[in-house]
Design a protein around this nucleic acid. Structure first.
Length: 468
RNA sequence: GGCCACGUGGCGGAGUGGUUACGCAGCGGAUUGCAAAUCCGUCUACGGGGGUUCGAUUCCCUCCGUGGCCUCCA
């Protein structure tokens, strides 16, 4: 099967060729853990989970390494820790905040049907590698120390801007940043910055401080994906200092990913860091940009209170990952209806194989809307439908558990059963006025009836369920 | 201001230089005492204007609209 992926680096859809088919390596930028993740954060998590599952299917479950980092050092974290844990020593407050928040994140994404990545490194556990990377960059003339900072000197790198496709002139022309006096060039970015006593800090050749934003991903991908495969500081082989796929939100293209590339490629002598760069599009809520001021800042946790995780997952995958998506209640309702149908169709399904048509759609740059269309075509093949849905991270519930997820009206089952029996008797006696009256009465209680016939005897039978 | 995406039927959403996916809703039929559920069938589209072409929703230009990035936001 040939897998095609759109590569931001080349702006084209390319055939995916792993560096080592026995170990396909994927890195995705993970959460900064200071608050509940919002529904926009869920998009890359779900999209790259589908990619992870597809890669595992194609190359084998043991031949894919998926890394999603945890950013647990960040100024927003520091600020939140001070706010939420007054009186607690900062280091302790930060640890409590990041551990708590990451626990929430893990629970949220598990509910969304996402597999755990192979590794989930924390930035704070890779500071030594960050320091080593910065030292290497300084030694090779790509970075310099100034006033307790270490900075990457952008003009030292010829290819800078290749991912974002913008020239230095463009960036300077559009610059709206205050240029710190210790910068040699306005575009230079921070690799390391000094910490005050109540901020998290680590010893370094430039004094006690903490990493800049971008260096952590260079360090964690190096430690988890490059060094274990024979690359790293002791290796100048560009092929060994590159991994396969790097993913994240479209907003990370610049400056985050551009700077990651600058750091890793200049430190390790590799031209591109990762062969394929994938970026998911943004999400709006009910047609508006999601923001706290508009009051439509929607967390995954809030949505999970009212909607099954699989509903959120399907809603996310009904749009191609590259397209913008408008997140609406109507969209979630439609997803729920579709999943109800799939759960019903697959209730008694046996063992089946994953449908090739769905795999083909996924192999075409993760065309999940096309894949879903193909799923609709599998209703006559319940076993294949079930196997394919499971491969995509659906059907984790039993049919009964799924049905129970819909908030039901609070009804007295014995009373309902009595009314249903009375109606059945009335129908048998052809007293339809009475049977319709009983049906209306049940409807008023929030009970929906399903009439049918016993397949063996032909006797009329009625089942019911409570709707919300 | 600079750079970059996107704009498909009532709604969601693929795709393609010429046979108008798929889903939800709607409508029609089967079924039903009547309904519900189910099954079958079915209507509606490619932002505006130019251009290339035998032919464009699909390629090019332009305008309009929406959104993103421009130092720490998926």
């Amino acid at each position: 099967m040939s897998l095609k992926l759109y590569n931001t680096l080349t702006r084209t859809k390319e055939d995916f060729v792993p560096i080592d088919p026995a170990n396909v390596r994927l890195y995705v930028c993970g959460p900064t853990v200071y608050d509940y993740a919002h529904i926009g954060n869920a998009r890359p998590v779900i999209v790259f989970d589908v990619l992870f599952r597809l890669l595992r299917h194609v190359y084998g479950a043991d031949h894919v390494t998926y890394v999603r980092n945890i950013t647990d050092v960040d100024d927003k974290i520091n600020a939140r820790a001070v706010r939420d844990y007054p009186g607690v020593p900062p280091v302790e407050a930060i640890r409590t905040l990041t551990e708590t928040t990451y626990g929430q994140f893990q629970a949220d994404v598990a509910a969304l049907g996402c597999l755990p990545p192979t590794f989930t490194p924390r930035a704070t556990e890779h500071v030594a590698t960050m320091v080593a990377l910065i030292e290497r960059l300084i030694a090779r003339g790509y970075a310099y120390a100034a006033e307790g900072h270490a900075l990457f000197h952008v003009p030292a790198m010829k290819a800078y801007g290749a991912l974002a496709r913008r020239s230095l002139d463009d960036m300077i022309a559009g610059a709206r940043v205050d240029v710190a006096p210790y910068k040699r060039d306005p575009m230079d970015f921070v690799l390391w910055k000094p910490s005050s006593d109540d901020e998290p800090g680590w010893p370094s050749p430039w004094g006690r401080g903490r990493p800049g934003w971008h260096i952590e991903c260079s360090a964690m991908s190096l430690d988890t994906l490059i060094t274990p495969s024979g690359g790293g500081f002791q290796c100048d082989d560009p092929l060994k200092n590159t991994f396969d796929i790097h993913g994240g939100g479209i907003d990370l293209v610049f400056p985050h990913h551009e700077n990651e590339i600058a750091q890793t490629s200049c430190a390790l002598g590799t031209p591109r860091m990762a062969n394929v760069w994938m970026h998911n599009g943004f999400l709006q809520v009910e047609g508006e940009k999601m923001s706290k001021s508009l009051g439509n800042f929607t967390t995954i946790r809030d949505l999970l209170a009212d909607w099954p995780g699989e509903v959120l997952r399907l809603t996310m995958l009904r749009s191609h990952y590259h397209q913008p998506i408008d997140w609406t209640v109507r969209g979630m309702e439609e997803s729920w209806r579709v999943l109800d149908d799939w759960y019903a169709v697959t209730a008694d399904a046996g063992e089946g194989a994953v449908a090739p048509a769905v795999l083909d759609a996924l192999a075409d740059d993760l065309n999940t809307p096309k894949a879903i269309a193909e799923l609709h075509g599998l209703k006559q093949q319940p076993a294949a439908l079930a196997a394919t849905l499971r491969m995509l991270g659906f059907l984790a519930d039993t049919p009964a558990a799924w049905a129970a997820r819909r908030p039901a009206a609070d009804v007295d089952a014995a009373a309902v059963n009595a009314l249903v029996a009375a109606r059945l008797a009335a129908r048998k006696a052809k007293n339809f006025a009475e049977s319709d009256r009983l049906r209306d009465e049940l409807a008023a209680l929030g009970v929906t009836l399903k009439d049918g016939k016993d397949p063996a005897t032909g006797e009329p039978v009625t089942t019911w369920e409570a709707k919300r």
